[in-house]
Amino acid sequence: MTEAMTHNIENRDEFNVEINGTVGKPLIDDPKFTTRNVDVHYGDKQAIFGVDLDVGKNEVLAMIGPSGCGKSTYLRCLNRMNDTIPICKVTGDFKLDGEDIYAKNQDPVLLRSRVGIVFQKPNPFPKSIYDNVAYGARLHGLTSNRAELDDLVEKSLIRAGLFKEVKDDLHKPGTGLSGGQQQRLCIARTIAVDPEVILMDEPTSALDPIATALIEELMIELSGKYTIAIVTHSMQQAARVSSRTAYFHMGKLVEVNDTDSVFTNPEHQLTENYITGRFG
């Protein structure tokens, strides 16, 4: 592709809309998470530009936007997963219950036990189903005896809606499950640590529709107890599971609002262009 061609495409009407700060309601009362002035750089490249956004208690916040818009990067800032990437530099204010999570004395290990994460591709450890779920509890020393651990594993699997399918195979390897089961195993693994917030990074993009439906149901159920932030490629999924939706575009947060109003009455032209399928 020549430079002239790229230039032309960038100037097409669908994209050529100015972003002047975030429209809608990015900030809310009594938030779980507050983030202000978030910038993220990968080496010399800036991936996120000045995002201000709150995540409410026990809500499901969906983040949508075209590929490379920074939604996953933003999500990974919330439990400092980006710390594991050496060239990634995160700046801005992040507060969980008013506590600065990037403070010097803040421990990423402790933070991640409070803010769990489920990844795009199911990534069970090469261990048994039981050991996968017990992993976090063992790490953090959450249980004091075998019976308690058994109990915790069973409860977590039940909540993740997986127990019935695997109760006789708890000592078989987790990698032997189907894709959807693996992802629910990863969710069970995460809730076994009993976090306050669960981050989900396109958790269903590698799954078939039935497995996806199961996980979406699970998300709605879990939202009663946990705060959930989900990045998704699918606008329909955002509409189905979330109460609020944030639209990201080229590293900027364009619009945040109740899911209904984002999809029925978008304020920003870019949001409208995206949800009506003019690009993406």
Binding site: V109, L110, S113, R114, L139, H140, L142, D194, P195
Partner: peptide, 16 residues
């Protein structure tokens, strides 16, 4: 519920 987990984890962090 969450808080008592956090305390438990905190108690073991030094050792870890």
């Amino acid at each position: 519920m969450s808080t008592h987990n956090t305390d438990k984890i905190k108690a073991k962090l030094k050792k870890r």
